[in-house]
Design a protein around this nucleic acid. Structure first.
Lengths: 194, 194
DNA sequence: CCTACTTCTTCACCTAGGTGAATGAAAAGA
DNA sequence: TCTTTTCATTCACCTAGGTGAAGAAGTAGG
């Protein structure tokens, strides 16, 4: 039995060990190499739940032909297209491994079974959703009132390792600008003028 | 016993009537007049949950001295500063009634009690958080890739009544721009040039 | 009824970010 | 190793949005 899952999950949410063990029993261990696609948006709803144990996953959309990074998942996070998962709508999100990664894959049907059989398990779902919500609202707040420079600094504080691991044009789209604009900002921060 | 609560909640989430009844028993009916403050950010964590039955609530932050509208709550929605509520951090959000409003006020302590006593009640919390998450990510997506005009049209589709009820400078800050820019956009949409 | 305040609009000007192209460096492949 | 592709940078130019000020219209209060 993997200790990683339990350790990471306990950092995230406070649930009894037995609940975690039952949960893990339904997960399938998987791995993906750098640049490998983990899930590709298609006509089917997203009906999985990925728990990242190692590596780095990137979720992105294609909007007007452009690759827009929606989120970077680090170990200990659940990767899911919640919109598609909850509404059973067509998924628009692609998930790729940015680094060699290891993750547990859960089936939505199993998750729903767990919700029914173990009402206490609802808590895991609630805390997961609440955490995802916090991160999303923080970004909304930043887009409403923080200029690019401030959003960049925030990301640098929250996940400095990203800047070593992810191409800058992905970070640019995550921040809502073009690669050239991010490059220009970095030049300005270095005191260069051009 | 109010039918409004049950009706609105059933539209939102699928839970048994008994659960709803137990829930409602812990709510305190309140009302607020137009422009009245419902909750003011202060040093204490936000430990309430408002369920709006009638009217319109606006949540906003003061960022660099500016009033930034975070969200407009319409009947059937739960209004809460989730960030403060979950992290027990100081609340930065103000809630005011934009129109004469009626709402149920719940105490966090009671909610937590319900979570403990009635594990099935966790489902209400999970679905609430999931719904809040969806709306937040939709906005992130728009800020990443949609220009002001598209964000404006989306809001117009989703909540046209807002435009009759809320001053435009509040809508502007919700969309992440200054009132003058929204005014300029509206002029452009009307085919005017200036 | 008149005044004061609020809200929206318009303007001239400025800055931030987008666009398209060119360059160079680094990484990947043959 | 040589070649090709990928990525970041820089540039000139353009457009979207911010700034500060002024004015018009509506609304609330005395």
């Amino acid at each position: 039995m993997s200790q990683t899952f339990r350790q990471l999950l306990k950092q995230l949410i406070d649930v009894p060990d037995e609940t975690i063990d039952v949960f893990e029993g339904y997960g399938v261990k998987k791995s993906a190499h750098k640049n490998e696609m983990v899930f590709a948006a298609d006509s089917a709803p997203f009906s999985k739940l990925f728990f990242l144990e190692k590596g780095l996953l990137r979720a992105y959309r294609i909007i007007d032909g452009e690759d827009i990074s929606f989120y970077f998942f680090t170990p200990g996070e659940f990767a899911v297209d919640y919109e598609s998962y909850l509404r059973e709508s067509t998924s628009q999100l692609f998930f790729e491994a940015v680094l060699d990664s290891a993750y547990l894959e859960f089936d939505k049907a199993d998750i729903n079974f767990l919700y029914q059989e173990y009402p206490k398990f609802e808590r895991v779902g609630r805390l997961m959703a609440e955490k995802a919500y916090l991160s999303a609202t923080e970004r909304v707040k930043q887009f409403q009132a923080a200029p690019l420079g401030a959003r960049y600094q925030k990301l640098l504080e929250r996940a400095p390792e990203l800047f070593q691991q992810v191409p800058q044009y992905h970070i640019a789209s995550y921040l809502g600008v073009k690669p050239q604009s991010l490059s220009r900002l970095r030049a300005k921060l270095l005191g260069k003028i051009y």
